[in-house]
Computed example of a mutant assay.
Amino acid sequence: MSVYVVLLRAVNVGGTGKLPMSELKTLCEAAGLKNVQTYIASGNVVCESGATAATVKKKLEAALADYAGKPVGVLVRDPEEMARVLADNPFPKSAPNRTVAIFLDAAPPADAIAQAKHREGEEIALGRREIYVHYGDGMASSKLVLPAAKAGTARNLNTVAKLAQMAAARR
């Protein structure tokens, strides 16, 4: 069995009438995932499967689309990738709750930073399949738009660290 961290995009898992954590866990189990554990109400799952990451992604996207009535993005990483995302943080001295990794399916385009709009002091760096952003003044007031991140999902580095720890504990 392989261990995976699953990150959902654009789903409010904590809101009324959306996708409660208990239902997310049930959907994951129905899609064949084992030992499903959710983490905070923002679409994070640590699980195990005999399937490949691509198959896990495909099955969960189908199950979530049936549930939500619209496409729901799913990004999948293994424990080593999650640890590497944390280790590759280009802003290690910045507050982890003000620094995010935006997870993507593929490497970000080389011009992703140049395409950023409404940038006002945010620091941006490209990772392997992530875009890192440090919001010095916090995310709430930021107007930053990253076209390359449209199909991605962001997690602050506190969350990345916890998910990496949870996944590593399964080894």
Rank of each mutant, 00 (worst) to 15 (best):
R77D: 01
L104F: 15
R119H: 04
M82A: 07
G121D: 01
P96C: 12
A106P: 11
A112V: 11
T99Y: 14
I113L: 05
D111P: 03
A116M: 03
P90Q: 04
I113V: 13
P79N: 03
R119A: 09
P90V: 02
N89F: 11
D111F: 10
A116L: 06
R98H: 15
D88H: 08
D78I: 11
A112Q: 11
E81C: 04
R84I: 06
I113C: 08
F91I: 09
A114Q: 10
F103E: 00
S94L: 06
R119S: 07
Q115V: 03
P96W: 05
N89I: 06
D88F: 11
T99A: 09
S94I: 00
A106D: 15
D88A: 10
P90I: 04
K93R: 15
G121K: 03
P108G: 05
S94K: 07
L86S: 09
D111T: 03
A107D: 10
N97Q: 13
E122N: 13
R98G: 08
P96E: 05
E80Q: 11
P92F: 13
A106F: 14
E122F: 15
Q115G: 04
A101R: 00
I102S: 03
F91V: 04
L104S: 05
P92G: 08
P90S: 10
A101L: 06
F91D: 00
E120G: 09
I102P: 01
N89M: 08
E122Q: 15
G121Y: 02
D78L: 12
L104T: 13
L104H: 01
T99H: 11
D78S: 12
K93Y: 14
A110Q: 09
P96D: 10
A101K: 00
R119W: 06
A107S: 14
A83K: 06
D78A: 14
D105Y: 04
D88S: 09
E122G: 12
R98M: 12
N89V: 06
E123K: 15
D105L: 10
F103Y: 03
A116Y: 07
M82P: 00
E123S: 15
P108E: 10
M82W: 01
P96I: 08
E81Q: 11
K117P: 02
N89P: 01
S94A: 15
N89E: 07
R77I: 02
R84P: 00
V100G: 08
N89D: 10
A101I: 01
V100N: 13
L86A: 12
G121H: 02
M82G: 03
A116T: 01
I102Y: 10
D78W: 14
R84D: 10
V85S: 03
D111N: 11
D88Y: 06
I113A: 10
K117T: 07
F103V: 02
R84T: 09
I113K: 11
L86C: 06
R119G: 02
A112G: 13
A107M: 06
R119V: 06
P79T: 02
V100I: 15
A106C: 14
A101T: 01
A95W: 07
A101C: 03
T99L: 14
P109K: 14
V85H: 00
K117I: 11
D78V: 12
R98A: 12
D111R: 04
V85T: 09
A101D: 00
I102Q: 01
A95I: 10
P90M: 08
M82Q: 01
F103L: 02
V85L: 05
L104P: 08
P108Q: 02
D88C: 02
P92M: 08
A87K: 12
